[in-house]
Simulated assay, not measured.
Amino acid sequence: MTERAAIEGRLVDADARFALGARYGHFTAMQVRDRRVRGLDLHFERLEGASRELFGVGLDRAAVLGSIRAVLGDDLRDASVRVYVVESGRPHVLATAAPPRQAPSRPFRVTPVVYQRYLPHIKQAAGFQQAHIGRRARQEGFDEALLTTGDGLISEGSITNLGGFSGGRLVWPDAPMLRGITMRLLERLDVPQERRPLKVADLLELDQVFLSNSWGVMAVGSVDGVELRQDDKLMALLREHYDGIPGDPLD
């Protein structure tokens, strides 16, 4: 399929999509399966909170659903969908649809990069720095970059959250970050959980390190070429929990 775009329920051409998509604003990314989305209320909550912070106004949920439905049309049941709220005189809701993405089954290779996002709790529409960091990481043979502070504390990936297991506890970095929708769904897993400062060296001591984003959950196999521990049972626990979350209907 070719990428589609809709603004407040109206299909538009690619020029209009890029003209608005590059503006000041925020967005959320989701995987649509059989016209359902996991954590749809969390996506609305994200968009609502960011809209109030950036624009000082609430979010029209009907406009969001209208644009998603318009961009899916009558024929698409599975797709990667992004919903942007961007300013062009006033806030506009823009949705795009592209081919669906699935989390790769192979472990990811990651590398640390010193960079911290401004307003990290907001998923920002104009993400040049993160896009550049991710692109450079891939050019160097890695799958993802881990964003760290100057003294080495890990916050998140360029387009992912990072987590790990230690002695049966699910560990998240204690650092400013975007709490991704998949991360928030994994926080509902019925295991002990904690936040603590994590540096790259600490990853070597964890039983399993993983990444999460709208694609799903991915194991981390190495950091800067150093192999990490792998535990298939822990990855299966994460994936079974995530896969077992029912999607919310869009229609």
Rank of each mutant, 00 (worst) to 15 (best):
A219Y: 04
E194G: 13
R77T: 15
A63V: 01
G127R: 13
V32A: 08
A5S: 14
S214T: 13
L65S: 07
L178R: 06
P104M: 04
R117I: 07
G152V: 08
Q130C: 09
R196I: 03
G56L: 10
G89V: 01
D243Y: 14
L206M: 15
A125C: 00
H43K: 06
A70G: 11
P197F: 02
G56C: 10
E156S: 08
V226T: 13
R135S: 15
V226K: 14
V191G: 10
P246N: 02
V85M: 03
A137Q: 07
L11T: 12
L228K: 02
T148R: 08
Q139L: 15
L40I: 05
F44W: 09
Q124N: 04
V191H: 10
I159N: 06
G21L: 01
V220S: 09
L47Y: 05
Y115M: 04
P107G: 08
R136Q: 14
D15I: 05
R109Q: 10
R4D: 06
S80K: 14
A98Q: 11
D34T: 07
F210G: 08
V37K: 05
A70R: 09
V12R: 06
I122L: 15
G127E: 11
G39Y: 04
F55A: 00
P176N: 08
A219V: 11
R106G: 00
R17A: 09
R101Q: 13
P112T: 05
S158C: 13
G127I: 05
L198E: 04
G58P: 09
P173F: 03
M1P: 11
F44E: 08
F128V: 14
G9H: 01
G247W: 01
A19C: 03
G127V: 06
F210L: 04
R69E: 03
L54D: 07
L72V: 09
R188C: 00
G150M: 01
W215H: 12
R46G: 02
G56T: 08
K199M: 07
A236P: 00
D202E: 03
S222Q: 15
Y24I: 00
A6V: 07
V223D: 05
A219Q: 14
M235H: 12
L119M: 14
G163M: 09
